[in-house]
Write a protein that binds this DNA or RNA. Structure first.
Length: 152
DNA sequence: GCCAACGTTGGC
DNA sequence: GCCAACGTTGGC
């Protein structure tokens, strides 16, 4: 799951309340559908820093709720306000994400070095989806082969 | 700041 | 339902 560290970094997420952070602002149907249909409480999350100097995986988190309406869609003062959405028929959903740990930054160039990760959606050219599924094989590879390495 | 990629909008 | 125009994303 992508987050802009200027908005919510892994440090911010770790400092948040125990329930985790509500993943507000997703305004893409595909990403919404992943939260609505594919995510389960307890699912592992790679916390990805995007739109920053060093984009890459910055930590581990987990899904901490089922999906529910994103309150920012109803708030006219929010940048995520959607006038076409109503509480009776909400268009946008979110899940709570609970940060588990900060990891060393695994940047895009490093991720691209590994053939085992070459199919990751996040690495595809032109990918803009802010939430993308990770296979069990990719998850295990990242945890066992990349997280373990020391920094520098 | 550039720009490729891609999602959304709206006229027809 | 098509598709051109437009807006946004996000790495570089």
């Amino acid at each position: 799951m992508k987050s802009e560290p200027d908005e919510t970094s892994i440090d911010d997420a770790l400092a948040a309340k125990a329930d985790g952070v509500p993943w507000t602002g997703v305004r893409n149907y595909q990403a919404r559908n992943f939260m609505r249909d594919a995510m389960r409480v307890g699912d592992g999350v790679l916390f990805y820093h995007s739109s920053c100097a060093e984009p890459g995986i910055a930590g581990l988190a987990e899904v901490n709720s089922t999906s529910y309406p994103d309150p920012t869609q109803f708030d006219p003062s929010s940048p995520y306000y959607d006038p076409k959405s109503t509480p009776e028929n909400p268009r946008w959903l979110l899940v709570d994400v609970r940060a588990r740990k900060k990891t060393r930054l695994i940047g895009l160039p490093e991720l691209r070095e590994h053939d085992e990760l070459s199919e990751m959606i996040i690495l595809r050219r032109g990918n803009r989806l802010s939430i993308t599924p990770v296979t069990t094989a990719e998850w295990n590879y990242i945890l066992h082969h990349l997280m373990a390495k020391k920094s520098h």
